[in-house]
Amino acid sequence: MKKKILFFLSLPVYLLFAVYSYQTDYKAGIKAVENLLSFSGHMLLFLPFAFILIGLFEVWIKRQTVEQYLGRSTGFSAYLLAVALAGTTVGGLYMAFPLSYSLFKKGAKLGVIFTYLSAACICRIPMTVFEASFIGIKFTIVRFIISLPLVIVSSALLGNYLEKKNYRLQHPEIKKEK
């Protein structure tokens, strides 16, 4: 409930900030508004398609399939599959979280989901190529060699622990229904 109030307050406050910035020619404020417009423009182009894809995933991918490859009875290969899935994820967090929820609902185990989430932050392919070309391939390789095993191990540990605690991923709308 508190969140909702915050949400409905944030818009008018931001609008005031924007009007004030343009009125007084406040540069940082104008830049922030420009950032927001370009960012939300990108997101409006991207998000509807991301959620169409998630809808298709929910409807077409069978629970058994997800359980078989990413479920509780799987071994190390499931983690590698999660990394591969993360590498091809577009849009970062905005895609990774909703998809994680779908994976959870279809029976993927928590360790695999946490691996997917963190790996989606660090090894998306376009981003990696970009990094290697700007900063250097050695830099990127070191990052991969060190971070990926740590991500997998920590995710597996956290996942196994939470699995015992009956932890559940949630979605904003589900929370409301409770």
Partner: peptide, 24 residues
């Protein structure tokens, strides 16, 4: 699938909008 996607999208907006405002 479209309905599911739309429902998820709309329910995420109250979280998403403050996040992009803060990010900007």
């Amino acid at each position: 699938a479209l309905q599911k996607g739309a429902k998820r999208f709309l329910s995420l907006l109250p979280v998403f909008i403050p996040v992009i405002i803060i990010s900007s």
